[in-house]
């Protein structure tokens, strides 16, 4: 089987995988990093968003083999330590920006990408527009938008 090597959350990883293995499968099934979710499996819902070389992408629509040598960041890799949350995670907790929690990892990875592209001062309209690729079936958008605004600000500190 083809071999793939990449860096996930700062650690070098390798795997022998079928060519058809999606990045999200590689993360969840080979590396047992199950924080990245599969919602729709059709690149619409955003539950599978991870960062590839610093840029948000949908891991259900990438082949793991395409990520040879790449730097991948998943939700498991954003917190600074075992006991501390990332400011964006903390903002989601503080603002109760999750109900069932299924979309949350993707929401947070997308939120970090919004901050990368748009900075730390985000108005609600911008956040809503930028969340085009993330669906919350609990429809908890109101608090998600609040959390991202607050989390973005907190990241500047």
């Amino acid at each position: 089987m083809p071999k793939v090597s990449m860096t996930v959350n700062g650690k070098p990883v390798t795997g022998d995988i079928e060519a058809r293995t999606l990045l999200v499968q590689f993360l969840r099934e080979n590396l047992r990093l199950t924080g990245t979710h599969v919602g729709c499996d059709t690149s619409q819902c955003g539950a599978c968003v991870v960062h590839v070389n610093g840029v948000a992408m949908k891991s259900c629509t990438l082949l793991a083999l395409q990520l040879e040598g790449a730097n991948v960041l998943t939700i498991e890799g954003v917190a600074p330590s075992e006991t501390q949350l990332h400011p964006m995670q903390e903002a989601f907790r503080e603002h109760h920006a999750l109900q069932c929690g299924y979309c949350t990892p993707g929401m947070i990875m997308s939120a970090l990408d919004i901050v990368r592209r748009k900075g730390n001062e985000l108005d609600d309209h911008t956040i809503r527009e930028e969340l085009d690729g993330n669906l919350c079936r609990c429809t908890g958008y109101h608090n998600i938008v609040k959390a991202i605004g607050a989390g973005a600000k907190a990241m500047a500190k």
Binding site: S43, G46, A56, K58, R117, D132, G133, N134
Partner: peptide, 9 residues
């Protein structure tokens, strides 16, 4: 086109 993540790829 699509959404931000799709446009990144």
């Amino acid at each position: 086109i699509g959404d931000p993540q799709v446009r990144n790829r």
